[in-house]
Structure formats: C-alpha cells, structure tokens
C-alpha cells in the first residue's frame, strides 16, 4: 500500500552518499597495487613536500603532494585504507558476534545470566577505552592481529548493552509469550523470534563500530602502537603530518578528511540501513 514511501526512504541520499564513499574507499584499498600512482614507500628527497596538484610547484603524478620524505601522499592514503578496512571489518565483526550473543542471552533469559553479563559489562566499561587499547597492544605486542583483538576486546560491550536492552523489550512482547504457549523452546524463540527483531540494531551498530575501529586504529597508529611503522596507516600519516603542519599542511589535512569521511560514512550508512531493514521504521 505504501510502496512509494518505502522506496523513497530506501533510496535516501544518505544511504547512497555514505555507501558511495565507502565503496570508493574500499575499492581503492582492495585494488591499491593496481591504482596507486606511486610506490607508497618510495622516498625521494628531490620531491619532498610537493604541494597538491592545484598549487604552484606540483608535479604530475603526485596528485595530493608528498610528505617530508618525498613519498606520494595519495598512494599512502590508498594503501593506508587497506589496514583501516581490514581492522574495521575484522574487529567490528568480532566485537559484534561476542557482544550481540551475550546481549541477546542477557536480555532474553534475564535472571542470573543477565546479572553476571551485566556486571562484567559494568566493570569493562569502567576502563577508559583508549588507554585500555594502548595497554592491550602493549601487552600483546604491536601488529595487525593485536590491534584487531584489542578493539574487539574493548568494544563488545557496546553491542552487549544495546542488544540486551532491545532483547529485553522484545522478550516482554506478547508474541514471545505466544511462542512459549505454542511450545517453542527458549533458545528457538531467542533465535527465531527475538533475533530478527534486534537485527536492524545489530546492523546499525556494526557499521558504527567499523567507524569506531577505524578511529581506534588511527589513534594507535598515531601513538605508534599499531602495526610496523613502515606500512602506511592513516593514523601514522596524521602523526607525521602533525610535525610538518607549517611546511606541508596537506600531509595532515588529507588523511584527516579521509578519516572523517570514512567514519561518518560508516555511521550514516548504518543508520540508513537500519531504517531500511526495520519493517516498522520504514
């Protein structure tokens, strides 16, 4: 009856803008060796601090300029995107699976399960997340897998809290009681009746968490605790750009814009997806 309204909200500009940027960034990251104009690690002191293409003194092939070691900024951003996306997908998925499962159990079963899980979440959230991440990576050692583990270990509580609250609300609904009366088992009801109703929230949170993972990875890179310093990362480039802000502002500004656009796109994309998936909202 309201097909027109559904398709309009489904094709909201927000979904397409955010999705478009993410797709572009993801494709660039995946195809980095093919499309990066330069070797992201190649130093050339003759080409140091070249400005972006529209300013005087720019060199063709170095579209966004170079850093103080003469490395091509665009190529470094493209290669940095690889690590950003790997961390975003892996860490957010791990946090999502653990946090959503525990949240669903706590919210649906209540009682002891809820008390234990909720206390753990309370304790967990008392740690300042960034310090916790730095501590974890310091203990686990730097490297891609440590970063992913650290983010997942810290951020599962986000999923747990939200999904617990949603599952609790759903568990009180009459349809859950009707399913009990009909003879469904508790776990069956949790998975078949409750989970589909919290799924839109899980999707939105997952996308949001990917953005957060990108930020945390950048923070860890910024304090030199992410992966090896040779591989370009957005946080690493920002850290270097900070040092030469007066000589070459672009080294700081372009990775910041990339980071902000990506994080914003993840959160907006998640919200738009939620609106699209949720049969009641749309």
């Amino acid at each position: 009856m309201d097909d027109a309204r559904i398709s309009r909200s489904g094709s909201s500009p927000r979904l397409w803008l955010a999705g478009g940027w993410l797709l572009l960034a993801l494709l660039a990251a995946v195809l980095a060796p093919l499309i990066a104009p330069q070797d992201p690690l190649a130093q050339d002191l003759m080409l140091e601090r070249l400005p972006p293409f529209w300013l005087d003194g720019a060199e063709p092939g170095y579209w966004l300029g170079t850093d103080s070691l003469g490395r091509d900024l665009l190529s470094r951003l493209i290669f940095g995107g690889r690590i950003a996306f790997i961390v975003a997908f892996a860490a957010a998925s791990a946090a999502c699976v653990v946090g959503s499962a525990l949240g669903l159990i706590a919210g649906y079963f209540g009682g002891w399960a809820d008390r234990i899980i909720s206390r753990i979440v309370d304790i967990w959230m008392a740690f300042p997340p960034v310090l916790f991440a730095i501590l974890l990576v310091a203990v686990l050692g730097t490297g891609l897998s440590s970063v992913i583990i650290a983010i997942a270990v810290i951020d599962w509580t986000r999923f747990c809290r939200v999904i617990r609250a949603e599952a609790m609300g759903q568990a009180r609904m009459d349809y859950v009681e009707s399913a009990r009366i009909a003879g469904y088992g508790r776990i069956g009801i949790m998975l078949r009746e409750v989970l589909p109703n919290v799924l839109p929230s899980i999707v939105a949170l997952l996308s949001l968490e990917m953005g957060i993972a990108v930020i945390v990875e950048a923070i860890l890179s910024f304090v030199n605790l992410s992966i090896s310093t040779d591989d370009p990362t957005w946080g690493g480039i920002i850290a270097e750009g900070r040092l030469s802000i007066h000589q070459a502002w672009w080294v700081l500004v372009f990775p910041l814009i990339t980071l902000i656009l990506t994080v914003l796109s993840f959160s907006q994309f998640g919200e738009a997806l939620k609106a699209r998936f949720d049969p009641v909202l749309r």
């Binding site: 609904m173 009459d174 349809y175 009746e193 589909p196 109703n197 799924l199 049969p279």
Partner: peptide
C-alpha cells in the same frame, strides 16, 4: 499490536 512478531 504486540502479539504478532513485527519482523515476520
């Protein structure tokens, strides 16, 4: 209103 599963 609440006796039917909204997502199915």
């Amino acid at each position: 209103l609440t006796a039917l599963n909204p997502s199915r």
